[in-house]
Amino acid sequence: MSKFKKKANTKQDIPTSALPDIIFMLLFFFMVTTVLREVTINVKQRIPDATQLRKLQRKSLVSYLYIGEPKKTDQWGSEPRVQANDVFIEPSDVILWVTTEKDKLNEVERDQITIAMKVDREAKRGLVADVELELRKANARKLLYTTLQEMEE
């Protein structure tokens, strides 16, 4: 009898002392690979896929424009709009916006400003082309259509 009792006394917990380390590892991974949200995006962003992606080298030279259908359709309507920073702008305001974005950069780097356009896949070319025309007028001619990597077979 006494022999059986001793066996039942074996430890049964799973050691969890390494759990915090595992979670911390995950935490650091996410802290390194992600960036803090700077703007609240008020337009729908279903980013199209493409295969021929290129990477941006200098993040400091990049300004973002968001184009798509507003999320709050009852307030802003369902026509695609252009969002810069936190507000909706008209294509005619793009020149002014580019100027303020350029002012944030070093004088020598102002010509190298890159505009990354995050365009919803349902947005129409007409609006995007209007914005492009304004960008040409504002002499911000480096453009990037943000896309996702398409899975290749």
Binding site: F30, M31, T33, T34, V35, L36, R37, I47, A50, Q52, L53, R54, K55, L56, K59, V62, A116, E132, L133, L135, R136, K137, N139, R141, K142, L143, L144, Y145, T146, T147, L148, Q149
Partner: peptide, 19 residues
Amino acid sequence: TTTIANDRGLSLQLPPNPE
């Protein structure tokens, strides 16, 4: 609070100002 940094896409050089 964070987003995964996505700085990839199709790069394009626009032509100069039409004027």
